[in-house]
Simulated scan of single mutants.
Amino acid sequence: MTKGNIENSVLKGIRYLQDHQYPNGEFCCYIGQDDEMKMCITQSNIFPTSLISYSILHLRHIPEASEILDKACAFLQYQAMRGGVWNNFTILNPLFRICPPDVDNTVCASLVLQKLDKHHHPNKELVLANRNETGLFYTWFTLRPKFNRMKNYWLLSLREFKHPIGTFLFWKNTEATRYDVDAAVNANILYYLGLNEQTAPIVDYMLDIIAKKKENDCDSWYCNPFTIYYFFSRNYKAGIQELEPAAKAIVERILGTLKDDHSIGESILDTALGVISLINCGYHSILLEKTIEYIIDQQKHSGGWHRWAVYYGGPKKRLTYGSEEMTTGFCLEALALYNLQLQEGNINHSDYLELT
């Protein structure tokens, strides 16, 4: 495999995303009832655009990628709510008015805008004010019988009284609760805010999850361990050395799922997330070359990759969320990170020599 193979695949993928980005900058999201999402309908959500945009940040030197990011940022800026927070659903989605804004969408959208030096309303104090007694962060910005000094917190929460019946049914009929504390959400908060006195409890929380092998059920919305590995590993790559024990375990567990065809896990999505997580955790091996070849081989003629469930509507997996565009974003991120390893010469050939 040559550097040219990767770059050709990346360019095809970027052009696929450019062709499939909506005029308003949004990316498609489907709702299904199984991981393969064979039967699904479209749903207007914020999160896919944030995730895809983050995945192609390393590719913004490509003109088409830069155009995609500019449109995506305009979309995210338009969807921002009071206090610089975001909802899971777009403003035009009927569910927007009854679903409370959430911290995960908020920090993921903010990360994209921050890394691209795009304007967004300061929201870090509001995020910090949404913690429980152990120092971990709640998933939702919503009413709780607890003192909060932030004006915007109350103004956001009081929107529940505009649609009391719909809000009541939201909490009754979904698997969400006002007191949700989720692992991937907290990992994303740590990545956004950085390690400091206020976010330190998240590190111990993450270490405990990996040590006790709870990555399969530590989050209500990310029920795939590879998604957990992905979000956790970003923090280690960001320089939080306290997570080294978790990083080593993540590498071992991902490599333990390597198949004979050099895929990882159960899908092309798992494979892409696995490669990204391995690289984020400091794994530099020529053995990844075959997995990168597998990713390229799985690319469709259109330039995209098959859809697979990225996140869920709750731990019971009654609803699955994903799209070809989301899978394509992660595959492009895997290719971009591996290409950076090649350019920097950070490939360990010893594993290959031991096998030959």
Rank of each mutant, 00 (worst) to 15 (best):
Y78S: 08
F27W: 01
G32Q: 02
E133R: 09
C99D: 14
N132D: 15
K124P: 00
D19M: 03
C40V: 07
D104M: 06
P63A: 11
L128V: 13
A80V: 15
G84N: 11
Y30C: 00
I31A: 14
R144I: 01
F137C: 11
T134Q: 15
N148P: 05
P94F: 05
E125H: 11
L57M: 05
C28W: 05
T139A: 10
A72C: 05
H120S: 10
R149Q: 09
L95Y: 09
F137S: 11
Q21M: 06
N24D: 15
N88T: 14
R97G: 09
Y54T: 09
F137P: 13
P48A: 01
R82C: 06
R131Q: 15
H61G: 03
L57R: 02
Y22A: 12
R15N: 15
I56L: 04
P145K: 15
T134M: 12
N148D: 11
T142V: 12
L116W: 13
D117K: 15
M39E: 12
Q33N: 13
Y16P: 08
H121C: 13
V103R: 07
E64L: 07
F89C: 06
Q21E: 03
D102W: 10
F89H: 12
G135L: 02
N130C: 08
Y138L: 08
E36H: 08
Q18S: 10
K12V: 14
E67C: 00
I98S: 07
P23I: 06
Y138N: 06
I31S: 13
S44K: 10
I68W: 01
P23T: 03
L136Q: 11
M37E: 03
D70W: 10
L11K: 10
F89G: 05
P23V: 07
C99E: 13
G83P: 09
R60G: 00
R131I: 13
K124C: 05
L143P: 04
V85Y: 03
G135M: 00
V85F: 03
I46N: 01
I52R: 04
R149G: 07
Q114V: 06
Y54I: 12
Q18Y: 05
R60D: 00
E67W: 00
R97T: 15
G13V: 01
K38A: 00
L59W: 08
A80H: 09
H119S: 09
P122H: 05
L128E: 12
R15Q: 14
D70F: 13
C28Q: 12
R149V: 09
A109Y: 04
C108I: 13
L128P: 08
N148W: 04
E26R: 14
R131H: 09
L92H: 08
I56N: 02
K124I: 11
Y78C: 04
L116M: 15
V112W: 01
K38Q: 08
H121L: 13
T106Q: 07
L57C: 03
S110C: 11
K115D: 06
H120R: 14
F141Q: 12
N105T: 12
H121I: 15
C99V: 14
L57N: 02
